[in-house]
Amino acid sequence: MKCEEALLLISGHLDHANTIEEEAALQAHLSTCSACRDVLQAFEYADQGIADLQEKAPEDLCDRVMEQISQPKKKKHLRPWLGVVAAALLLVVGVSATVDLQEENIVPQTATVSEAYSVQRSVVQVDADALAQQISRERDAVVAVVREMYYEIETYPCETLEEGGVLYALPDHNAAVLLHETYGCAIYEPNENSDTAYALLVP
């Protein structure tokens, strides 16, 4: 056995992952190769050193988690660039003012920003929403419109649509509702009894 091959088996030996044959071959090699015996000792030392670095979690971790999940859920999940625009808008018109992005009679100095926001918003939303409605009708399914990839949906089977976007098959109706509650995604449902559910990811 070459030392290069032994390296893999030395690592496997530490993880108790070698087969009986591999282990026998390794031991035979180690009995004649002091360099590989050194490697084994060095690996053991490093493993022990890494394992010894473990610490207790901070005492307040659980409380912090529970405090955060007990807070009211976010109603809307803006894409980062929309967040910047919205923040700029809030700065201009004042935090206490009621901001209605669809209103036409917004103070003049905010018009450019708000127009940009409304136009972008409507262009993205109309297409996606129409598509979601269409899928919801045709497949008798609840459809949540998502604007960015959430880790929750990435492992579900998906299909790429000709109209644009990717459709993820969700496990049930509640999963779509959860996306709505967590991220504020729009959802379309033909009726409350439908248990077929999708997440429509649009660019």
Partner: peptide, 14 residues
């Protein structure tokens, strides 16, 4: 770690 647990709570249905 806090973020991971909060995400786990949110995504538990998944």
């Amino acid at each position: 770690a806090q973020e991971a647990f909060v995400k786990a709570w949110r995504g538990l249905r998944f």
